[in-house]
Amino acid sequence: MKIVYFTHSLASCWNHGNAHFLRGVLRDLIRRGHQVEVLEPQGAWSLQNLLADHGEAGLEPYRAAYPELSSTEFGSDFDPDRALDGADLVIMHEWNEPSLVAEIGKARARGGRFTLLFHDTHHRAVSDPDAIRAFDLSGYDGVLAFGETLAEVYRRWGWENRVFVWHEAADVELFHPPAAEQAREGLVWIGNWGDGERTGELEQFLMAPAKAAGLSLDIFGVRYPPEALAMLERYGVRYRGWLANARAPEVFARHLATVHVPRRFYVTTLPGIPTIRVFEALACGIPLVSAPWSDSENLFRPGQDFLFARDGAEVERHLRAIQNDPDLRESLVRSGLETIRARHTCAHRAEELLGFVAQLNKTARPAAQQLITETV
């Protein structure tokens, strides 16, 4: 099967978490014998920021880890018929421009002999629904939503049984425990500051407990404004800047534990959706403590795969226990790895994707329709 994926960027993971998941899934599809082509717009802001900060050297970890992957940039002379020639499956990520989304939908509606899916991996459907409604999805066959609560939004918008829950997962070829254990110390957190929507949570569930437990804290990520850096300095945090995702396993391997602090939308409005860092951390065999969120889809075994904390004081207690109890560390690592390997690898998600396509192809193609613009 020929698969064409329209992404924001495959090469850059600078503030672009979908690249993590996409790389692992596409690598698995290639190894299953499928032909994969990745298209991305010229001047993608993630790639431009990466190159501005780190130059071509910033791309080397990705290239070394994924030699079988490549992408083609397109510009104003983009020819959709040429790009889609021979395609069996086309997937459009929601970080693309509405004009491109509409253009590919029209190509499908004109009789394109491929299955066309829209891939949503963000909270904009609830945080900024007008931005999603700006997309003309009338020519699309289905939607891939990275959580059940997001899928339910699309069902309310009229997609019914044409929306599929497609969670992110870990690329276990890259994300795995170190071949040989080394000395571990301190706490690590890998994440972007973003728009300040979880400033209080990062202080309450990460910085303050780490300091209270006497653990050093290394933070990696981008988009940290001066006020964020000042907060890190007050807590004695070592800010390390951007980290290529392909290097995350070696960083996890040097630390005693990590913490999951979900963005506020994934606690309040879209519960049940963990970030990809949860899957990747557990796959690397590092004990994890999580701030509150609702595992409404039973993706994990809270208390076994990782430790939930209701407040900062409980995070501190968990961190002290992990620091002082080798048996607890071993148990968390073993359980977390077991769950990832059984249910949450990119190979699992590739298999799910092929199943979704088969399911759509078994039924008559529904008439094209516009999204229903009701209030979320």
Rank of each mutant, 00 (worst) to 15 (best):
H54I: 04
L59W: 08
E60D: 15
E60T: 13
P61R: 10
F74C: 11
G75M: 12
D81M: 08
R82M: 11
R82C: 12
A83M: 00
L84T: 07
G86S: 07
A87C: 10
D88N: 15
I91F: 00
H93A: 09
E94R: 09
W95M: 04
N96D: 06
S99M: 10
A102S: 12
G105P: 04
A107G: 08
A107F: 05
R108T: 00
R108S: 02
A109C: 06
A109R: 04
R110L: 07
G112D: 06
H119Y: 10
H122A: 15
H122L: 15
P129F: 09
P129Y: 00
D130S: 14
D130R: 14
F135M: 10
L137Q: 10
G139W: 04
G139R: 02
D141E: 08
G142P: 08
G142N: 03
G142H: 08
F146M: 15
F146H: 14
G147Y: 03
G147T: 00
G147H: 05
L150W: 05
E152K: 02
V153I: 12
Y154H: 00
R155Q: 03
N161D: 09
N161M: 06
F164V: 03
V165K: 02
H167Y: 06
V172P: 02
F175G: 10
Q182E: 11
